[in-house]
Design a protein around this nucleic acid. Structure first.
Lengths: 120, 120
DNA sequence: GACATATATTCCTATATAGGAATATATCTG
DNA sequence: CAGATATATTCCTATATAGGAATATATGTC
């Protein structure tokens, strides 16, 4: 079986690095034209149109027509499922940080103990 | 150009729903055998072996051999890049929540004002 | 050593998809 | 209306990859 389609699974949509780049551009909160994006990335216009189309279909960008132009804007809320999923693992690296803290405190205690010995 | 390979890009590795399922299983922190996973998911043994192989290559799981078995364990720290990336968009939905809060407060104020009027 | 069990690997096929080229479709400007 | 500009779409090709079947490779047990 193939994986869930890029246009239905936001995880898959975002698995393509150039789409993450586009999202990075749009994350300035402003409206971007297809050609604005083309000018920034080294991609052809049809390629950019297609990537934006995928992002639109998963809801990560929205588009409004303004005359000849289509203004694309980031709809970051639809990236939240990814954040939520990844957050469920937060405890794993926080735990590691805790261990580092613990060890640092341990060392500090040892140093203090040593200095106390000297004083005696 | 094709996208970055599943075995080099953790975003792409995790774009496959069955791999996310496997990660979900291993997130109990325990060691899982290939057959443990096969028993839980409706996937053949070779399929599971291959998925675990992909996750191993991006570092999301680690494996130790114990006799006949290979024990797979989640190495969640290597999911952190995904969390970090998604976190850069947190402000977008927090902002929305702020708006909701604001509006709720607004309504509360209005209600209080109305009640004050009645009292007069 | 013969067999059983656990897992990986190889081979195959179907499918998705990224991107280029060409073209279609609007919209704007004179 | 005749360009010009902006964007989408269609067609094509190369490539990745998911999964099944068969097989290989260990390791355990009698």
């Amino acid at each position: 079986m193939a994986r869930a389609a890029t246009i239905t699974d936001v995880f898959n949509a975002v698995a393509e690095p150039r789409r993450r780049e586009i999202i990075g551009l749009l994350s300035d909160g402003r409206e971007w034209t297809v050609n604005d994006v083309v000018a920034r990335l080294r991609l052809g216009q049809p390629t950019v149109s297609k990537h934006l189309g995928v992002l639109r279909k998963v809801g990560v960008v929205i588009v409004v027509r303004r005359g000849q132009h289509r203004m694309y804007r980031l709809e970051a809320a639809n990236l939240k499922p990814i954040h939520d999923w990844a957050s469920t693992f937060e405890r794993f690296w926080n735990q590691k940080i805790d261990h580092i803290k613990e060890r640092a405190e341990q060392k500090a205690m040892e140093r203090i103990a040593k200095e106390n010995l000297k004083l005696k």
